[in-house]
Design a protein around this nucleic acid. Structure first.
Length: 151
DNA sequence: CGTTTGACTACGC
DNA sequence: CGCGTAGCCAAAC
């Protein structure tokens, strides 16, 4: 079996992660990038800024055929907005699909990560796939002010 | 074949 | 907060 180029591996890793995003939740490009170990050719400090773009390339490379298999619309940018060209057919489709999953966009066309942000795959899945745990997008709800948790 | 252009993000003003 | 920029992979011009 032929060994695929690194790029193919990277893209497939991205797609595998995107497949794990549950209905009604969203992940960011940067969040997905932090799960994937940096290639040796990249300086680790640079990786955090470079890799999110690679995730964007991977999403751009999702073919129409694969799109059935990959919930590409659940990947948005770090500001909580849709990165596709505003007004484009793709952007409209992405937003409508998210809204049909119950996701709310505010007046600035951004979602609330505390409400719909994804905190990453299960630990078991991450371990099986040799991936790192991402920074959670959704902070633990402090809905009980009277109950102060341990620091 | 050099240039441009992205589905990005952290950081410095 | 908003704006500009660096960082750098591929694919389309």
């Amino acid at each position: 079996m032929l060994m695929p180029p690194d790029q193919v591996t990277y893209y497939q890793t991205v797609w595998n992660i995107v497949r794990q995003i549950p209905t009604g939740q969203v992940a960011t490009y940067g969040q997905i990038a932090t799960m994937i170990p940096p290639p040796e050719s990249v300086n680790p400090p640079d990786y955090d800024r470079i890799a999110p773009r690679w995730v964007g390339y991977a999403m751009n490379a999702v073919s129409a055929r694969d799109a059935q298999d990959i919930p590409w619309w659940r990947v948005i940018n770090s500001k909580g907005g849709i990165s596709l060209a505003e007004g484009s057919q793709s952007a409209t489709l992405q937003r409508s699909r998210l809204e049909s999953e119950g996701i709310i966009f505010n007046e600035k066309d951004q979602v609330d990560f505390n409400q719909c942000g994804w905190n990453g795959p299960d630990d078991d899945w991450l371990r099986e796939n040799d991936l790192s745990k991402p920074r959670p997008l959704r902070k633990p709800p402090k809905d009980k002010p009277e109950q102060m948790n341990l620091l």
